[in-house]
């Protein structure tokens, strides 16, 4: 399930931001997201979160959305894995 979340999260990032799958495949835990990817603006943050909810099967509360969540790929993945484990 951990691998599945990782794979699906990369796919969601590629879909929402229009990135090439090859670029997303190279993301590691330290890859910066918000502020590092020009494609990721506040408009697409909304799309990203909603798509994560739909495809990964959990609900993200308003107060869970903060700067740290989208800081790196590692932080976003850890969040998604924790939400799935709790769901």
């Amino acid at each position: 399930m951990t691998n599945h979340t990782d794979r699906e999260l990369r796919r969601i990032l590629a879909d929402v931001l229009g990135l090439k799958p090859a670029q997303v495949a190279e993301f590691d835990a330290d890859t910066g997201l918000f502020g590092h990817l020009p494609e990721l603006d506040s408009m697409s943050v909304a799309g990203l979160l909603t798509e994560m909810e739909d495809r990964l099967g959990f609900i993200i509360d308003d107060d869970e959305i903060d700067g740290e969540l989208l800081e790196t790929y590692g932080s976003l993945l850890a969040f998604a894995q924790a939400k799935r484990a709790a769901a």
Partner: peptide
């Protein structure tokens, strides 16, 4: 889903 997406955009803005 459509409603939540629009609410979130407004909230983030």
């Amino acid at each position: 889903t459509i409603l939540r997406q629009m609410l979130r955009i407004r909230m983030l803005a």
